[in-house]
Design a protein around this nucleic acid. Structure first.
Lengths: 151, 151
DNA sequence: TCATACTATATGCATATACATCTGTCCTTG
DNA sequence: CAAGGACAGATGTATATGCATATAGTATGA
């Protein structure tokens, strides 16, 4: 018995709601990335935090929240396990209200260790969509994101 | 003191990870839609279920999950409050394993009542992005979604 | 410098979701 | 038709998030 030449899967209809399409895509793509990352014992959500901190360097919790369009109070809990695992640490600046987060050496190491697996997922998307479409998609995502941010 | 002519907000850097960009956009856009829908006492997640059922008519739970790229077992709980509110009902087909869901009249009414508020959010995105960009975005979202689905 | 308002984060509570596993059905084959 | 496996959905458990509210620290003006 050989492979069906034509994929029989239904064409997955577009929903009339942009929000629903976005959420659906986020769920599906999250699974794709997690399938790759699971070998590292980390999921894309936490990997994203490492990646963001690697990009920004030390940054206050609230700023990190703005960067990721994440409620800053949600970050309190999302960062906790990373702290416990020794991947990030918070230090105090002049303003004692601030939590200034940064990667530890162990965190940087973890990030670099997971990077190739993340890359496999990223490359797969890149290859399937093509560079031009990817660039446009990214641009549009940034645009809707900015547009949706609170005034 | 007059408005600043130029928005001072940082340009919200693009992240190097498509998954992170998608998730960030989904979070932000979800809030935009929820701000509109909150007057209806419904959130976009549940509204999406009503919309989907309105589109498909009666449909087994598993099929609905595929349509929304949602784990079918997650739907068990997401549909529960809608059942409790009398907006959807499950009936049994020939196969007693199946839960075949459909909108009740109350569910259809709720959907129609919320539609204008949903539309405000949808229009806002549409207007900001422009029709062409919207269409391309939707297409790309469908493509990444399909691409990410399990083999 | 105190009262007041504001800011950054923490906590309580709620929803959205995933995956592993259990249970009840159904189907396939000896 | 019984045994074994495939399927659909239910449940246990865990993470991701949001919003409302509580707290601690800062800034401001009388």
């Amino acid at each position: 018995m050989r492979e069906k030449a034509v994929e029989s899967r239904t064409p997955l209809p577009l929903l009339p709601c942009t929000c629903a399409n976005l959420r659906r895509a986020a769920r599906a793509v999250t699974r794709l990335y997690n399938r790759e990352l699971q070998h590292d014992g980390i999921e894309v959500t936490q990997f994203t935090l490492l990646m963001a901190l690697n990009l920004t360097g030390e940054i206050p919790q609230g700023e990190l929240g703005k960067l990721l369009a994440l409620d800053s109070t949600s970050l309190t809990r999302m960062l906790a396990p990373l702290k416990k695992r020794g991947w990030v640490q918070a230090k105090e600046g002049g303003d004692r209200r601030l939590r200034i987060f940064g990667l530890t050496p162990a965190g940087r190491a973890k990030f670099e260790q997971s990077l190739p697996h993340w890359k496999r997922a990223q490359d797969r998307v890149q290859k399937a969509l093509g560079e031009k479409t990817m660039a446009r998609l990214s641009g549009s995502l940034m645009e809707v994101t900015r547009l949706s941010l609170p005034a």
